[in-house]
């Protein structure tokens, strides 16, 4: 009996130590992040404080991005799948568009849903997006190539088989943008700056550390 108690005590001490080690390693980034307002994928106004109590992974991007944004969302989907169902309820993955004119809430919802329906896509007015970008010290810039040229006009010079031509102009643009993944704790403080290249297990460990704080 005594032997069993000693083993149990050892295991519980070990697990407390592990959870502290995971959380304690993360500093608090003063000046990166904060409260903001946006529009969710259902078109409803949201405040960042609505996510209080959840660990948040926040990223910036846009749906007309062919390489890094789908790659990042695929990476986040893989990361999210490593969490248990219970852990998933305590974590929110947020994708903030830097192209709110093109990425309307409905459009964003369908795009994000391709990767994981639990993920939240945030849009809003250009002023709202610019404010969020500045809060997180992120950056974005419209690329000069294809800048203001509607893709419909580009299509005209390239022979292509389309059966559903539309007269509506499609003003999707290309951007350069920050690729940082912001790991935010349950109180809304930024605790780690990650990248798509961070090993998934290492990132999951940091998330677990913040869940257990």
């Amino acid at each position: 009996m005594l032997k069993k108690l000693v083993i149990l005590l050892f295991i519980s001490l070990l697990s407390v130590q592990i959870s502290h080690a995971e959380g304690d390693e993360l500093p608090l980034f003063s000046g990166i992040g904060g409260s903001f307002s946006a529009v969710d994928a259902d078109g409803k106004a949201v405040e960042f404080s609505d996510f209080e109590g959840q660990v948040v992974v926040l990223s910036f991007g846009y749906t007309n991005c062919a390489d890094i944004c789908p790659f990042t969302l695929g990476y986040l989907a893989r990361l999210y799948s490593k969490l248990t169902e219970e852990e998933q309820t305590k974590v929110q993955i947020i994708f903030v568009t830097i192209d709110p004119e093109y990425d309307t809430p409905g459009h964003l919802k369908q795009f994000i849903g391709h990767f994981n329906s639990d993920f939240v896509g945030l849009s809003g007015s250009k002023e709202q997006i610019d404010y969020i970008v500045s809060l997180f010290q992120a950056k974005y810039q419209k690329l000069s190539v294809l800048n203001t040229v509607p893709t419909k006009n580009i299509r005209r010079v390239t022979p292509k088989l389309f059966s559903d031509e539309s007269d509506e102009e499609d003003k999707a643009s290309l951007y350069s943008h920050s690729v940082t993944l912001y790991l935010i704790d349950k109180s809304g403080f930024t605790r780690s700056l990650e990248y798509t290249g961070t090993p998934v297990d290492e990132f999951v460990s940091k998330i677990r550390g913040l869940i257990n704080e």
Binding site: P70, H107, F111, H114, A172
Partner: peptide, 12 residues
């Protein structure tokens, strides 16, 4: 080629 979401205008 990466399978594109239903609303995507580009892929890689």
């Amino acid at each position: 080629i990466v399978a594109a979401p239903d609303v995507a205008r580009s892929t890689a």
